[in-house]
Design a protein around this nucleic acid. Structure first.
Length: 1045
RNA sequence: GCGGGAAUGGCGGAAUGGUAGACGCGUUGGUCUCAAACACCAAUGGCCGCAAGGUCGUGCGAGUUCGAGUCUCGCUUCCCGCACCA
């Protein structure tokens, strides 16, 4: 009986679905386990083989935990608000809901194909009003709370109001805007309601404010810091500029310390935790106020982490945007300063980054007063000081800070050493904390540890400064000028925002005629008719907020909704929260390190403060699956920014001969055309034995290159518009390349310093091949040539050639890169499932290597897994194809290998090492085959062990073994350590740490006997001839090391 | 520049301080076949050797240890993240 996945897989998927096998309910009799995948954004491209990697690993874990008796919550949903659907809507007029729905259906189909054990009755979509009702509700809670620094948690804003009425805000320790004025109770009580509301906005955890934001003109929206990479938008790569705008903001900074501390209690990768720590960017230092000469009213405050270097401050630098700039600038300098400020404003982020080493600045003509010495020091502007960090001003200590040093050198400002340990100040700054201070007034002769508190005490006593903690973390911009997102449940009255009544939630997205900004530049919601709110009991109506929420809103809390997805009264019931608590294992990509993974922790801390979340940290364990990369099909030009849109293939071998012309037919389109080829001459004769997979390449065009050699052009510019065709073609070409080393790809116009690339041309030294390639490839012997990084940035990795005549080896490597539609290197999981079955695909993805590391996709290896499954299947059938297992009792060898496998697979799943599990199954199968074992007592437990990995095959065999219930609820085989023991062990014998031989010895042989036996061995005696034994180290049942000289 | 991680055959990758290279791919040889494919069997880190065996081997250099891919120190290279953060 042949193993045919198509016969069994759809059948069992249907059965599982019909029988609700994967549906879960809270069950206090069993321990719970919550395994969550990061839900996908349903893009139009569908899944590729890289996507399911994490899903498969978590599915294996979920199935395993079920077999271990856990009540497993393993849900899936869609992060279905987002930019691409909106862009598509702008282009086509199709409502994003409609295209999103279509994409989701496609995703669901693909996910179903792979046999995941999701409880689909809990599916959710962030764009579903039943879901975003609660996103809006949480937003309202944030609006209604402030962060109390004394309590260390969020408290209702009403409590804050009460305190203001009682005693003003002087004694209130709360997270608030920097510019919050101090007021007394009397003053508060005398204010208007509008004034009250405006002041409260300075405390609320979400609030509108005028601030510099990342404005992306091309996308017509603002972006949060984590959505901007290298000065351009993460989606689309459009330029981003800084712009002062009124935006909703989340006071995440209030939680900075808790988000930092929380990292200590979660089992996430060090790299993600470090990224979050860095993003939060806590630094301890001091705030110091400098006076301005001749202006007793003005002060320049700076933040420094090195207050101990303050005596070395010989000038000050302000950011060009600093608010005091025009005030303190002298008339003589005004023109220069203004032109510098203008110049700085026009520079984009990219400009700044590419010129970080260049010193620019301007002198304001003003002088600051050094708080300790009273000296006057000049005040400059420079854009190396950032307006957005600290106070936007620094005290410049050229002897201790390299940037200040460079600036001082450029403007010929004094560089004063401040420590006797500083060296090399002729060359560079020396930021040492060693030694004792010199030229430093009250701290002369002190060490670093003594100086800092001395200085801070001095400053505090005079009101000139204080110790301060500064964060890099900024409040997160929370509004987007887009259509396809959650509407903010807010209306505007009298210039301040009000929440709509909770009973009016959800505030549904209105219909609009177009998905573009209005003619007056308002967001698309401005197009909605009658987009106004009438508060309960009011006759007036007021305009709703026109912005929507950002993409990360829904994903900041969705993990709770799965626990109770259909609840209409609460975001999640208390019972469900008490039972499921939080996520036990969270699986997803590391690209969300400082976006989703930080924002969701923030919301969770907030919900925890409200008593709505059971745990401070919602996900104890995080697994980051690596990215599966595709191979690039392109050869890049080193000196040009964009790579060729063509793929050239040069035929190296006469695989089209005059005798047997090959037809290349277009099979992908309605129009069909064929080319007949007959090549008479050939450039090279690398042996090629298989070409048949070439027969589906589309649109091949024969052409002649400049040097007169024949070339085939496989892509053409028309195809650029048909991305799917590209992907298709690229895959076909890769298959051809995979099958044989048939091609060299080359560029249109070869240039000597640019390389030709071939695909794993040879892996063994072949002198013929070598010399011919040498001629053709034009490369420097023994060199690894990096094809260069376009414009200094690794926009694309490149293929490299290495030829090493000394080693007689020739290497050629392909670059690997992210699989993406635009790179034409996508491999579709459906194709894999269609050809090999879901079980095989699942196992193969796991077999590729550890989940956390990225690796290139290589379809070749899948046959190994497929053969394994076929052979495993065959164990259950006799030659006539009848299902037959023996009821004989198993022998010790069979039991040993079974229990070894139980042990290894159990241990390895627990440590998320799925790749080695697959190996263990293969080893087990190889052993059982050589033992010709078809005994039920062995095979039945094996089927259960395999069930998490290959659920369909296991289910089929399980039923054939005579079970009525599903293998999904079978008990995990129990390890019996007795069976692992054997009578003898293989002892390795080393002499001075070198392996000299092995010998079979009885288990647990006593020491003197071991020594005796070992020394009797022929190979030991032979190697011991001139040596005297010093010592014999015995590791029981493993190794004997004879130390001798 | 700073932070995190990695480096093991032709390739993906295994190895609680204890026989490096499990398992798979690929390759080579063989069986089957008119032939091919599939399948099956065998070999497969390099070098020397007919063989037995020897010898060198986990990026480089030191160290700890009876014993190091694994631990320590110092480098190199690559990947990821951040990047004028005062």
């Amino acid at each position: 009986m042949e193993y045919n996945p198509k016969d069994i897989e759809p059948k069992w998927r249907a059965w599982w679905r019909e029988n609700g096998t994967y549906q879960v309910k809270p069950d206090n009799s069993r321990p719970k386990f919550y395994i969550l995948d990061m839900f996908p954004y349903p893009s139009g491209a569908g899944l590729h083989v890289g996507h399911p990697l994490g899903y498969i690993a978590s599915d294996i874990l979920a199935r395993y935990k079920r077999l271990r008796g856990y009540n497993v919550l393993h849900p899936m949903g869609y992060d279905s608000f987002g930019l691409p659907a909106e862009q598509y809507a702008i282009e086509t007029g199709i409502h994003p809901a409609q295209s999103t729905d279509q994409n989701i259906r496609r995703y669901r189909e693909q996910l179903d194909n792979i046999g995941f054990s999701y409880d689909w009755s809990r599916e959710l979509r962030t764009s579903d009003p039943g879901f975003y009702k609660w996103t809006q509700w949480i937003f309202q809670q944030l609006f209604n709370h402030y962060f109390d620094n004394e309590a260390g948690k969020a408290l209702p804003i009403a409590q804050l109001e009460a305190r203001f009425r009682e005693s003003g805000n002087a004694a209130v320790q709360a997270a608030c805007d920097e510019d919050t004025p101090v007021f007394s109770a009397e003053a508060w009580n005398a204010m208007s309601e509008k004034a009250h509301r405006e002041l409260l906005l300075k405390y609320r955890l979400t609030f509108p404010e005028e601030s510099y934001v990342n404005w992306c003109p091309a996308l017509g929206t603002v972006l949060s810091n984590d959505e901007v990479k290298d000065g351009v938008s993460e989606r689309g790569g459009y330029p981003v500029e800084r712009k002062l705008m009124k935006q909703w903001s989340m006071r995440i900074t209030a939680y900075a310390d808790r988000l930092l501390a929380g990292l200590e209690e979660i089992d996430w990768s060090e790299s993600i935790k470090e990224q979050q720590r860095y993003w939060i960017g806590r630094s301890q230092g001091a705030a110091v106020k400098f006076g301005v000469a001749g202006r007793p009213d003005a002060q320049i405050e700076v933040f420094t982490t090195r207050v101990d270097t303050i005596y070395g401050a010989t000038f000050m630098v302000l950011a060009p945007e600093h608010e005091l700039v025009s005030e303190i600038t002298t008339e003589a300098q005004r023109q220069e300063v203004e032109s510098y400020v203008r110049w700085a404003a026009t520079r984009t982020e990219i400009d700044r980054m590419s010129e970080t080493k260049k010193v620019t600045g301007a002198f304001t003509g003003a002088y600051a007063l050094h708080p300790f010495t009273g000296d006057t020091i000049p005040v400059y502007l420079a854009d190396y000081v950032l307006a957005g960090y600290g106070t936007g001003a620094v005290m410049a200590v050229p002897s201790g800070d390299q940037r200040d040093y460079q600036f001082a050198r450029h403007y010929n400002l004094p560089i004063v050493p401040i420590s006797d340990a500083q060296t090399g100040l002729d060359e560079a700054a020396d930021p040492t904390k060693e030694g004792r201070y010199i030229n430093s007034g009250i701290i002369n002769g002190m060490t670093y540890a003594e100086a800092v508190p001395t200085l801070i005490r001095w400053l505090e006593a005079r009101g000139l400064g204080k110790g301060k903690v500064q964060y890099k973390l900024r409040n997160a911009v929370f509004s987007r000028q887009r259509y396809w997102g959650e509407p903010l449940p807010v209306y505007w009255k009298d210039g301040t925002p009000y929440l709509i009544d909770a009973k009016d939630l959800p505030l549904r997205l209105p219909a609009v005629d177009k998905y573009l900004p209005t003619e007056t530049g308002e967001p698309p919601l401005g197009r909605a008719e009658n987009w106004r709110y009438t508060p309960p009991g009011s006759t007036e109506s007021y305009e709703y907020e026109l912005s929507t929420m950002p993409g990360w809103a829904g994903s900041s809390w969705y993990f709770y909704r799965y626990m109770d997805p259909h609840n209409e009264r609460e975001f999640c019931s208390k019972e469900a929260l008490d039972y499921w608590k939080g996520v036990d294992v969270y699986c997803g990509g590391s690209e969300h390190a400082v976006g989703h993974l930080l924002y969701s922790r923030f919301w969770n801390h907030f919900l925890y403060d409200l008593g709505l979340a059971p745990q401070k940290e919602y996900a104890k364990k995080l697994i980051n699956q690596g990215m599966i990369q595709g191979r690039s099909n392109f050869v890049f030009r080193a000196k040009e920014r964009f790579f060729e849109q063509y793929l050239w293939i040069k035929i190296l071998q006469p695989f089209f001969s005059a005798e047997s012309p090959i037809q290349l037919a277009n099979t992908g389109h309605e129009e069909t055309f064929t080319y007949d080829f007959a090549f008479e001459t050939h450039d090279l004769a690398i042996e090629v034995t298989s070409y048949k997979q070439l027969d589906k390449i589309e649109r091949v065009r024969q052409t002649t290159a400049a040097d007169g050699k024949r070339l085939l052009l496989l892509f053409n510019e028309e195809l650029a518009d048909h991305i799917n065709d590209h992907a298709y073609t690229a895959v076909k070409i890769r298959k051809a390349l995979d099958s044989r080393e048939a091609f060299i790809m080359t560029q249109e116009e070869p240039v000597s310093d640019i390389l030709y690339v071939s695909y794993e041309l040879t892996h063994k030294y072949d002198p013929e091949c070598f010399s011919k390639l040498h001629v053709d490839v034009n490369i420097v012997d023994g060199d690894v040539l990096d094809l260069g990084r376009a414009a200094g940035k690794p926009m694309f990795h490149n293929a490299a050639f290495k030829m090493d005549p000394a080693e007689k080896k020739f290497y050629c490597s392909w670059e690997v890169e992210k699989m993406s539609k635009s790179k034409y290197n996508v491999v579709n999981p459906d194709d894999m499932v269609d050809k090999y079955g879901a079980d095989c695909f699942r196992m193969y993805e796991m077999f590729l290597g550890p989940i956390e590391v990225g690796k290139p996709w290589d379809t070749k290896g899948i046959t190994g897994v497929y053969n394994f499954l076929r052979k495993f299947w065959a164990q259950f059938f006799d030659e006539q194809g009848r299902f037959i297992v023996s009821e004989e009792p198993p022998g010790p060898d069979e039991l040993r290998i079974l229990h070894q496998t139980i042990k290894k697979v159990t241990d390895d799943i627990e440590r998320y090492s799925m790749n080695t599990c697959v190996s263990h199954f293969m080893i087990l199968n190889n052993e059982l085959r050589s033992l010709k074992c078809n005994k039920r007592a062995i095979l039945e437990p094996t089927v259960i062990l395999m069930a998490p990995f290959a659920p369909h095959l296991s289910e089929e065999l399980w039923r054939l073994l005579g079970h009525d219930s599903t293998v999904c609820s079978a008990p995990w085989p129990e390890l019996n350590p007795e069976y692992l023991k054997s009578d003898t062990v293989t002892l390795a014998v080393q002499i001075n740490g070198k392996l000299r031989g092995t010998l079979e010895a009885p288990l647990d042989m006593p020491y003197p006997d071991i020594e005796e036996i070992v020394l009797r061995q022929e190979f030991v005696q032979r190697n011991m001839q001139d040596l005297t034994i010093r010592k014999i180290v015995v590791v029981p049942n493993r190794i004997v090391n004879i130390v001798a000289n």
